[in-house]
Computed example of a mutant assay.
Amino acid sequence: MQTPPPKSNCKSILTCLLVFLFFQVFTGTLDAQEWAKKMFATLEHDFGTVAKDSMQEFRFEFTNLYKEELHISAVRASCGCTIPTAEQDIVKTFEKGTILATYNTKAFAGARGATVTVTFDKPYFAEVQLQVNGFIRTDLAFSPASLAFGEFSLTDKPRMEFNVSHAGNTDWMITDVRSKNAYYEVEIIERTQLVNQVGYKMAVQLKGNIPVGYLQDDLIIVTNDVANQEIKLPVSGKVSAPVTLSPSSLLLGITSPETEINKRLILRADEPFTIESLTCDYPGVTFRTGSEAKKIHIVPVTFNAGLSPQKIQATITAKVNLNGEIILKCPLSATVE
Results as ranks from 00 to 15, higher is better:
residue 56 Q to T: 08
residue 82 T to P: 02
residue 140 L to Y: 08
residue 241 A to L: 11
residue 165 S to E: 10
residue 154 L to P: 01
residue 122 K to G: 08
residue 240 S to T: 15
residue 99 I to T: 05
residue 8 S to K: 06
residue 319 K to P: 07
residue 257 P to H: 04
residue 29 T to S: 15
residue 190 E to N: 11
residue 291 S to P: 00
residue 112 R to H: 04
residue 223 T to A: 11
residue 100 L to H: 03
residue 311 K to P: 00
residue 328 L to F: 09
residue 106 K to V: 12
residue 197 Q to D: 04
residue 288 R to G: 08
residue 123 P to R: 10
residue 310 Q to H: 01
residue 281 D to R: 04
residue 228 N to R: 15
residue 59 R to H: 09
residue 133 N to P: 03
residue 228 N to C: 12
residue 256 S to P: 01
residue 169 N to S: 08
residue 146 S to Q: 13
residue 299 V to G: 11
residue 310 Q to I: 01
residue 143 S to M: 12
residue 138 T to K: 14
residue 172 W to S: 07
residue 243 V to G: 13
residue 247 P to C: 14
residue 108 F to G: 09
residue 134 G to Y: 08
residue 172 W to C: 11
residue 161 E to A: 06
residue 36 A to D: 01
residue 333 S to G: 09
residue 78 S to E: 05
residue 331 P to M: 02
residue 114 A to M: 09
residue 180 K to R: 15
residue 88 Q to R: 12
residue 254 I to E: 15
residue 88 Q to T: 10
residue 152 F to I: 04
residue 264 R to A: 10
residue 56 Q to W: 04
residue 209 N to R: 06
residue 91 V to T: 07
residue 72 I to D: 03
residue 5 P to E: 02
residue 192 T to E: 12
residue 315 T to K: 05
residue 268 R to Y: 00
residue 118 V to N: 12
residue 279 T to G: 11
residue 3 T to P: 01
residue 221 I to Q: 00
residue 136 I to F: 04
residue 222 V to S: 00
residue 272 P to W: 01
residue 105 T to M: 05
residue 137 R to E: 13
residue 243 V to W: 05
residue 113 G to Y: 06
residue 244 T to C: 02
residue 213 G to H: 06
residue 109 A to D: 13
residue 283 P to R: 06
residue 80 G to Q: 03
residue 206 L to A: 04
residue 154 L to G: 15
residue 280 C to P: 05
residue 309 P to V: 08
residue 210 I to S: 07
residue 246 S to V: 12
residue 297 H to L: 14
residue 281 D to V: 04
residue 55 M to V: 15
residue 63 T to M: 13
residue 7 K to M: 00
residue 88 Q to K: 14
residue 27 T to E: 08
residue 219 L to M: 07
residue 111 A to Q: 15
residue 274 T to R: 13
residue 34 E to N: 12
residue 22 F to Q: 07
residue 243 V to F: 07
residue 115 T to K: 10
residue 159 R to N: 08
residue 291 S to Q: 05
residue 44 E to Y: 06
residue 161 E to N: 07
residue 271 E to W: 02
residue 155 T to C: 00
residue 8 S to I: 03
residue 170 T to V: 07
residue 176 D to P: 01
residue 314 A to R: 05
residue 201 K to T: 04
residue 129 Q to E: 14
residue 252 L to K: 13
residue 265 L to K: 10
